[in-house]
Amino acid sequence: MTEQPKADEAGVILGPFRIRRLFQKTLFGVFALFGFIGVATASLAVYTVDTQLTQEYVSNSRDIAKTIADSSVDILLNRDLAALQSLVDQFVEIQGIRYIYITDETGEFLAHTFVPGIPEEILASDTTDTATVERSLPGMGDFVEVGSPILAGFAGNVHVGMDTGLIALKIQRAIGQQIYLICAVFVVGVFAALWFVNLAARPIGELLTYAANLVQRGGDAPEARVLERQDEAGQLARLFRLVAGGRRD
């Protein structure tokens, strides 16, 4: 919808017409486009980061569990549990690993890193099972736990718990960075859209002003700058003047 333009004392419409609806539609289009891009890229990022990080962490955990299992054989056979605990303590310093426990072939705990005690959920679980499981431990968080047998399980099993909260944190960071980028692009896009809309709207406004003057004054309408334009607005203005009975260039 266009706004009613001002006119001088002689009835010449001065314009300019303000092109609001076109402007609003363009802005809405920009918002919609960026919203769609934002949601789509964020979703893709969440999926990609989550999948790849989880796979990487699980893979690393398996490697670590296997390394501990391989390193533990002699220590376990020597029944040197202090050395076993020392080994476990070194691995638990790796980022993302929140707990490690080692059980013997009967399921008895020989070394672990839990404070103040072994969680009930883990005590109640089948510690001879080395399959990857997801655990939610009250007061500790959510974990992906992987296992590895020691001497094919005849000497016990190693279990490594990776903190999925860390994965969530990394996803949050990745999404956060993406949102910052999209916001920055959005602001630039809005200003660019405004500039382009104004650029496109100015000749249309001049054309509207000229057309209104033609309607008001017929062939006596004053010359307008839009008539000099070589683009579609200029051609349209000249056509209007012809239709209104004005001179032909």
């Binding site: 549990l81 202090a82 605990q85 020392s86 303590d89 890193t113 839990f114 404070v115």
Partner: peptide, 11 residues
């Protein structure tokens, strides 16, 4: 103590 010392005594 949750380390080698504690485990040694625990054992």
């Amino acid at each position: 103590q949750a380390d080698a010392y504690g485990r040694s005594g625990w054992a």
